[in-house]
Every structure is written in structure tokens, then in C-alpha cells.
Design a protein around this nucleic acid. Structure first.
Lengths: 141, 141
DNA sequence: CATTATAACTTGCATAAAACAAGTTAATTT
DNA sequence: AAATTAACTTGTTTTATGCAAGTTATAATG
């Protein structure tokens, strides 16, 4: 992950996905963007899982290099940047939803989780539209 | 990953999935089982990405502890074991398919890849049935 | 039946990546 | 002008990975 040669340089579609977004921390950043609408460094930093700052910086660079996210100055605050999903990144929403569906089948559910699952099952297109429109699906956990 | 306390012990459905199967090597092992029908240690070892033997052993234990795969003696050869997907593991097939769909949209395609993608789009249920029946979807790459 | 081979690991060690703590820079608020 | 905030970077320790070699149990071979 440090050098930017692909770890698994196979010609496999699955390995390509894994190498591009499948790292644990990368994917949690993407979750925070898609589900919670996070877009700033500081927001990612205080995720529930407590990512280290150097690891976060590296992952953001990686995702940007891979064309999954893009970085732009915040016009309202020039010391801040806004990260957002590219089309390539937005296309990952179905993967996220399938992971949530899988976990839902194998983890104990509470009301909050049930609500999310229900919406995935009954309003998948609405969720995908919300993600594309940068609208948060969930409030902070 | 070495100690078996969850890395991201959050109460998030996504983090649960990531912690359970989302490690790079774990998921490639699952790919080999689902797509290529692999079921033996030696088969996983000579995957295209060249997993190290100690890492493979650890990942197989992890997946077994998580209830994703199960291990049984090979009745035909008592020095061999057969690994197979549990129901919990088989349920991951939709995640695999979505990753393949994503990569297909963002990676150059060849005939082999196009064939697989086409089958995913037109015969999803057939693929899922094949995976459940331990029938390989693809021949070795 | 003694030797060799095979399958599935384990162990030890060097290297790479992650976690932790502290420091830096540029913009902003007080 | 001083303190604060956002977004990092740097240095160090801890943990995980990669590689080579060794082990154990079963099976095939001369």
C-alpha cells in the first residue's frame, strides 16, 4: 500500500476492486462519505473506528489517485478542503449496499439497522439517488 | 488481524462486514472458492496473487472462526482437507458480483471478462445457483 | 517394507505497514 | 498580535506481511 504498484497485479476483476477500494480503511472512508455525507478531513478523522491521521492522509491520496474521490478547496473556508465522490466512486454504492444486506442477515439487528435495511429493500433507487446527490442516508451513529 | 479482537469494534454493519471478510487476502480466497471452485489448501496457495503460506493458514482459520467457511477431511485422501462455504459464506456472492460489476465498468475488458459480465447481467440467478452448488463459474485464469 | 513424495501446515526472521505522539503550515478568529 | 483551527507531516514503536526452511501425517513407489 505504501508504494503505488498494485499489490495484487493480476488481471482479475475482483483483485482490481480489492486493490482500488478494498482496503479496510479506504472502504470505511467511502462509507462515511456515502452513508453519512462526510466530506472533510476532520470528519473522517473522528470516525467511530478512530483512524490514525497519517493513515487517513495516505488513504485519501490513494483514493484520489485511483479516481474514486476528488479534492477541492472549500470556497467558504480557505483552510479546509472538500472531498467528494467521483462517478467512479459513486458507482461503489451497490457494493456498499450488498455488504450492508449481508451483515444484516448475520448480525443482530436494532431499530436503526432495521430501518436502514428496510429502506435498502424497498427504496434502493432512492438511496442510490441520495448518495449521488450527496445527501446523507444516516445521521451520525 | 493477528489477535482475534475485531479491528473496528464499532456497531456498524459495514465495519462488521469489513472485519469479517473484507481483508484483502480473505476476500481473494473467497473469490477462489466462489468463482473457481477451489477447496484445498494447495489450490489457494497457488492463486495468481501468490499468497504466503502462513498468511493463508491464518486467513483460513479466521474465516472458519467467523463461520464463513468450514473445514472437513477429504474422504478420498486422508492427508487432505476440503474447505467449503457455509451459508453465511455463500451469502457473500452478491457482494462479489457487485465488485465484478464495478470493476467491469472501470477496467478495460477482454472477451473473457465480457462473457462473465454478460452472464452476471443476464443470468444472475444461474450464477448464484452455481455458486451454491459448488460449480465453478470460471476456469482457472 | 523402507524410501520418497505429497498435503497441510508451523516457525523464525527480515521487511513493510499501521498505530501513536508530536510537530508544522496556512488560514482564521479573538 | 496571539490563540485557534484544519489539514496535514515526521519520527518512533508496534504489528502484520513476505519469504525460506522445517514439521507431521498420510500415501505412493521400488
Amino acid at each position: 500500500m505504501k508504494n503505488e504498484t498494485k499489490k495484487h497485479d493480476s488481471n482479475c476483476l475482483v483483485a482490481y476492486g480489492i486493490d482500488t477500494f478494498g482496503d479496510r480503511w479506504s472502504f470505511l472512508v467511502l462509507r462515511d462519505m456515502m452513508l453519512y455525507g462526510k466530506c472533510r478531513y476532520g470528519e473522517f478523522l473522528c470516525c467511530e473506528e478512530q483512524i490514525a491521521t497519517n493513515v487517513l492522509a495516505q488513504r485519501l491520496k490513494h483514493l484520489e489517485r485511483e479516481g474514486i474521490i476528488s479534492k477541492a478547496r472549500d470556497p467558504e473556508n480557505r483552510r479546509s478542503y472538500i472531498y467528494s465522490l467521483t462517478d467512479k466512486g459513486l458507482d461503489l454504492a451497490p457494493v456498499l449496499l450488498e455488504i450492508i444486506r449481508w451483515s444484516s442477515r448475520h448480525l443482530e439487528m436494532n431499530a436503526r439497522r432495521r430501518r436502514l435495511l428496510k429502506r435498502i429493500e424497498t427504496d434502493r433507487d432512492g438511496i442510490l439517488a441520495d448518495i449521488r446527490a450527496h445527501r446523507a442516508i444516516l445521521t451520525a451513529p
